[in-house]
């Protein structure tokens, strides 16, 4: 694996600089609102990718931890949020606590794999939603639970939430990058490809799986906390909404599971598309069909997700341009530019 060079850092720098400048440059309210949810989903999909992409464990229950993070903010800040920034300061505590809480859950759920794991984690979603409906003293049940309103000025009301989401995305991507560049990512890659074989070469399979799961769940809970503070009112069916789980999974699939930028790209395509279709088709649920159609069309042409499929095609074209070479893997020694292959693998 080639370390992320200057070009990669530059790309990330420009991306986050642009995100940071958007409110300052006077983006209209509707754009900022859309961006808050886009960046939120980019963060969720990047967090999901740690376990769903790198470890190959497609969790469909992540929104349970999103909801737990949301209710944590709701429970602590029912009457007052002080200066308005205290809820953000609580987020790291929520992240660590939920991360630790998720370890026993992951330990049980990760005894299953692939489709069984997906189903086990769906039950996690419904258990959490049922608890949210029924633990009325804590959550207010179906009546919902309100978070004390933040005392931010009207003109820049959205800014703190927007920047909080951007910071969460940056953290998720930084951890994602760190995983890739450390032996954690190397170990996770063996778990994803062939877990039994990974055991057989001494990889600490359970440890890295649980680490990825816990970090992923902790991040998702923190983002849930920001969300709850922003929307101000927490209902079980919205805080633990299957559509949120499906959203983060679809976006990671669309952009490319197991890549750094794929989940971000997926979110920046699907969330605006969803907003646009919701506007166009009005209150009907038709927009969900259009949303699904976008996903299906892209997956039809780029089945491994946008980034892996495109980079693979580019690499193949470059190999072909190099002249009629033998296919790789023949026994003869033969020079191949490693950089080309690296990009194919990325």
């Amino acid at each position: 694996m080639k370390p992320v060079g200057r070009a990669g850092l530059l790309r990330a720098g420009i991306f986050f600089l642009l995100l940071a400048l958007i409110p300052v440059l006077g983006a209209p309210g509707w754009l900022l609102t859309t961006l808050i949810f886009t960046v939120m989903y980019a963060g969720l999909a990047s967090s999901w990718n740690l376990v769903g992409g790198y470890a190959g464990y497609p969790s469909l229950g992540h929104v349970a931890f999103f909801g737990i993070g949301a209710y944590a903010i709701g429970l602590v800040f029912t009457n007052s949020v002080g200066s308005g920034f205290e809820p953000f300061l609580l987020l790291p505590v929520i992240g660590v606590a939920v991360g630790l809480l998720s370890i026993p859950v992951g330990w049980i759920a990760m005894r299953t794999r692939a489709d069984v794991f997906a189903i086990v984690t769906i039950t996690l979603l419904f258990i959490t939603q049922t608890l949210a409906f029924n633990l009325k003293d804590l959550t207010g049940g179906a009546q919902g639970k309100s978070v004390a309103p933040p005392p931010f000025p009207v003109e820049t009301f959205d800014w703190p939430f927007y920047y909080a989401m951007v910071v969460m995305l940056a953290i998720a991507m930084a951890i994602s990058l760190y995983f890739r560049r450390s032996k954690i990512g190397l170990s996770l890659a063996t778990v994803r490809a062939d877990e039994d074989k990974a055991h057989g070469i001494g990889v600490r399979v359970t440890a890295v799986k649980l680490l990825a799961f816990a970090v992923s769940c902790g991040l998702v809970a923190m983002i849930g906390g920001v969300w709850a503070y922003y929307v101000g009112f927490i209902y079980p069916q919205f805080a633990v909404d299957p559509l949120i789980t499906i959203g983060m999974v679809l976006m990671a699939f669309l952009g490319g599971r197991g890549t750094l930028w794929g989940p971000v790209l997926g979110a920046f395509i699907l969330v605006p598309a969803q907003e646009y279709f919701a506007q166009t088709f009005g209150a009907s649920e038709l927009y969900l069909l259009a949303y699904a159609a976008v996903f299906i069309v892209i997956m039809l042409f780029l089945p491994r997700g946008i980034l892996p499929s495109v980079s693979e095609r580019l690499a193949r074209r470059r190999l072909a341009a190099r002249g009629p070479g033998e296919s790789p893997g023949t026994d003869a020694a033969r020079p191949v530019d490693p950089a080309v292959r690296m990009e194919a693998a990325r």
Partner: peptide, 17 residues
């Protein structure tokens, strides 16, 4: 080869290769 070489807990958090 690297992933099969066996590594310590500390190395797990270190560089990929």
């Amino acid at each position: 080869l690297v992933v099969a070489a066996g590594f310590s807990w500390r190395d797990l958090f270190g560089r990929r290769v």
